[in-house]
């Protein structure tokens, strides 16, 4: 399977989670990306350093960042803890809720479910990069206009998932919006208004 988790609009949240869970994907990718032979196994005395860092670079919100990432660090950790981009939230930290959704090369991904090294060379968009200066992205504006939030903690994830959806489907029906955002949980339960906001944003985007 593809090493990058992505959402397809016909896939339910639960099915999606099943499709990306399991550590084997991450492990395979890591050893490949590190570009060297695996270390010897600890079969005798002495010290064995298992974790080391790899220099990676990727673009975040249009700006190139270069950093040394541990293979086990998730993209979410790097964004929040090292780049101080706290828009993507840690809600479940295991790919169940969409609170950490960002766009990776234009595709919707859960940042908690992606290793930072997998983002090497990629183009990442977070909520902090959605507006152009003072001008909000139409999706952001629509969420304000329609009150498509309550506590706002899931909002960055919903915004990015919505932008990702509208890039693929310019004129989604209500059911397509629901299916397209099925990977995101709003515990305040304001789905009805969120979907209305996405519908309104789609219209604005179509008008250009």
């Amino acid at each position: 399977m593809d090493s990058v988790p992505k959402k397809r609009k016909s896939v339910s949240r639960r099915a999606f989670i099943q499709s990306v869970s399991g550590g084997a994907v991450g492990a395979g990718v890591v050893s490949r990306l590190l570009g060297k032979e695996p270390r010897p196994r600890p079969t005798g005395p002495g010290e064995l350093e298992v974790f080391e860092k790899k220099r990676i670079s990727f673009t975040v919100n249009g700006r190139k960042v270069i950093l040394d990432a541990e293979p086990r660090e998730t993209l979410l950790q790097v964004l929040r803890e090292r780049l101080r981009l706290t828009g993507a939230k840690r809600v479940c930290n295991r790919g169940e809720c969409g609170g950490c959704t960002v766009l990776l090369n234009g595709r919707t991904v859960y940042a908690c479910h992606l290793l930072a090294v997998q983002a090497d060379g990629a183009d990442v968009l977070t909520v902090e990069g959605l507006a152009s200066g003072d001008k909000l992205h139409p999706v952001q504006q629509a969420f304000i206009d329609k009150d498509g939030y309550q506590c706002g903690f899931c909002t960055p994830g919903f915004l990015l998932a919505s932008v990702g959806l509208l890039a693929k489907n310019k004129q989604p029906t209500f059911d397509e919006i629901r299916a397209g955002l099925a990977g995101n949980i709003c515990r305040c339960g304001n789905y009805q208004k969120i979907y209305a906001a996405v519908g309104a944003a789609a219209e604005v985007l179509r008008r250009g």
Partner: peptide, 21 residues
């Protein structure tokens, strides 16, 4: 009336306890 702090919420500027360092 739309929320007066809507812009903060949709830009990720709204700081939650999780976000403080």
């Amino acid at each position: 009336t739309p929320r007066v702090d809507g812009r903060k919420i949709v830009t990720g500027e709204a700081l939650y306890t999780h976000d403080l360092v």
